[in-house]
Nucleic acid binder design. Structure first.
Length: 537
DNA sequence: TTCAAAACTTAGTACTGTCCCT
DNA sequence: AGGGACAGTACTAAGTTTTGAA
């Protein structure tokens, strides 16, 4: 492994004289350190974050910590701080960047490409590989997701003295920037990272790693799907096994069994325990009393469990599922004598669960179920939805619907795009226009003598218009159904790409319809490997 | 054996560039 | 030229699993 080391964030450029920070209405010159952090906050002042007390409190505390004595004496109340001038300055800078001439933009692009060429590539086992994140995260304010207790804290600047380099002993070591030293240069070929540093807000180690297109990452991805296929072969036995455990005498085993049922049936995440200083989110093992409700009957279904909790990234999971009678009875038992804040599975955690899983199958852990169920669902949905005869557009719609079924299973949500309403309106207008066209053409065709040149021309035009109309309608349905569902995550992380590649080949759909450029690069291994007979069952 | 740290995967959102229309 | 829509990309937080020290 040989590389040039990471790229650091540019030095702070102090504000020009005319840009004023004001305290209590009076302009005030800040020390560079305090000014830089004031600049970070100024970029947020039009954002919801600054209405949150936690954000403001954390920010103010960290900001004051690096003020000079004099600044600290004066600046005691965030409410009296006026950042608008600074904010306007940065907005103006960004406008200027947008308004740059073509040449200036091109120059910037070329400079950027030069950096990528030098620092974005490494040599691994004699092969050139792209690096994923070779730029070290710049300083700024921490933006957690959901109700994060640390939101607004200052994420400090990382310098070479913070960075550990990992490379081969016999390689040309990266040079630290002039006047600096690395924290350490080590040679550990049992890990895949090129450089690491410890981030100050949560104390977590951050890594520079390879791009997903690299051989190393590709092989790991491939192994992940092979593991999921291995599970596919054993899933019947495993289901039998946990269903049997629903009746166990031991509470811990019953809890384990019900958790496995959830993970298998609903594709829930494992649910590790979390610290107090993180957002309160849960997964399967960490579900609490308040996260589920039981109904012997609801909406015509029996034994209904209603889930409502915040999962990863504080994304809400809401679902109403009819479960097996024994599961329902067990849940009643688990909830008995409990109250808000109590664990649903008080005799279970992810370590216990994964330990058991690894005994059922080597390398089996909770997340393998998610991969398996996602890929399995895609295969099964493609079988069901793909029209035998149909246009490419119709097949692609079927593919997107199959993809969407997986995204729903995995609860991959997104905020509906801001432009959704508007673009939907445009699309509907287009459809109406096209419908009118079709109508007109039909009438014209009717009135023309058959076999005339004019007739043929209009007839073809009509056919074309009808095809376009069908396409537009498909487009509309696709868009509306998917407005709050993110397809990318499942496509990138859960769906065995060989299923998609084989499906494209089998149904004469160009691979570009399913995968964009980045995705094709990541899934190169599958595109090269697979023929139309591949299946994931 | 326990537990925290390290390592690596998965995740949504913000930003950027491009295309097309006015 | 300006601006909106959209796709693709960059970013980095937040999970899971593995590792290894106490």
């Amino acid at each position: 492994m040989e590389h040039k080391g990471p790229v650091f964030a540019p030095e702070y450029e102090p504000l020009p004289k005319g840009v004023k920070f004001r305290y209590n209405g009076k302009s005030m010159v800040l020390s560079p350190a305090a000014e830089e952090v004031a600049g970070f906050y100024s970029r947020f002042i039009e954002h919801d974050y600054t209405t949150k007390e936690v954000f403001n409190k954390n920010f103010f505390k960290d900001w004051r910590r690096l003020m000079t004595k004099e600044e600290k004496d004066v600046i005691t109340d965030l409410k009296k701080c006026d950042f608008t001038d600074i904010n306007n300055y940065y907005k103006q800078k960004s406008e200027e960047r947008k308004a740059m001439s073509k040449d200036e933009k091109l120059k910037l692009k070329e400079e950027n490409e030069a950096i990528t060429k030098e620092y974005g590539i490494c040599m691994l086992d004699g092969h050139k590989e792209k690096i994923g994140n070779f730029r070290i995260e710049p300083p700024g304010l921490f933006r957690g997701r959901g109700e994060h207790p640390k939101m607004g804290m200052l994420k400090t600047r990382v310098i070479p003295e913070d960075v550990i380099i990992n490379c081969s002993k016999d390689s040309k070591f990266p040079k630290p920037p002039p006047g600096h030293k690395w924290k350490e240069v080590r040679h550990d070929n049992t890990v895949s990272w090129l450089a690491s540093w410890t981030e100050n807000v949560q104390g977590q180690v951050k890594y520079v790693m390879l791009n997903p297109t690299s051989r190393l990452k590709g092989e790991k991805d491939w192994m992940k799907y092979e593991k999921a296929r291995e599970l596919a072969k054993k899933i019947d036995k495993i289901r039998e096994n946990y269903k049997h455990d629903f009746k166990s005498k031991e509470m811990r085993i019953r809890q384990r069994a019900v958790a496995m049922y959830f993970i298998d049936k609903l594709a829930l995440r494992a649910g590790n325990e979390k610290d107090e200083d993180q957002a309160d989110t849960v997964g399967c093992c960490s579900l609490r009393y308040e996260h589920i409700k039981l109904y012997e009957e609801k909406n015509g279904k029996e034994n209904v469990v209603e889930f409502d909790f915040l999962g990863k990234d504080s994304i809400r999971y809401q679902n109403e599922v009819s479960v097996e009678k024994r599961v329902f009875k067990n849940l009643q038992l688990f909830l008995n004598n409990k109250k808000d804040g109590d664990d649903l599975f008080d005799r279970l955690n992810t370590t216990i669960l994964n330990k058991h899983l690894s005994e059922l199958m080597e390398g089996l852990s909770a997340k393998v179920f998610r991969t398996y169920n996602a890929s399995h669902t895609l295969q099964q949905q493609l079988d069901e939805l793909t029209p035998k005869k149909g246009t490419v557009a119709e097949k692609v719609l079927a593919y997107n619907r199959a993809n969407r079924a997986v995204a729903i299973l995995c609860n991959h949500q997104r905020a509906a795009p801001k432009s959704h309403e508007k673009s939907m309106e445009n699309l509907i207008n287009k459809i109406e226009q096209k419908q009118a066209d079709v109508k007109d053409l039909k009438r014209e065709v009717k009135n023309l003598p058959k076999k005339s040149k004019e007739y043929e021309k209009k007839h073809n035009a009509l056919k074309r218009a009808e095809e376009q109309l069908a396409k537009l309608k498909i487009n509309r349905d696709d868009k509306e159904e998917g407005k709050e569902i993110a397809l990318g995550t499942s496509k990138l992380n859960y769906l065995d790409p060989r299923i998609t590649v084989a499906w494209c080949k089998k149904h004469d759909v160009p691979i570009e319809k399913a995968y964009n450029k980045t995705q094709r690069a990541k899934f190169r291994w599958a595109i090269d490997m697979v023929d139309e007979t591949y299946r994931f069952d």
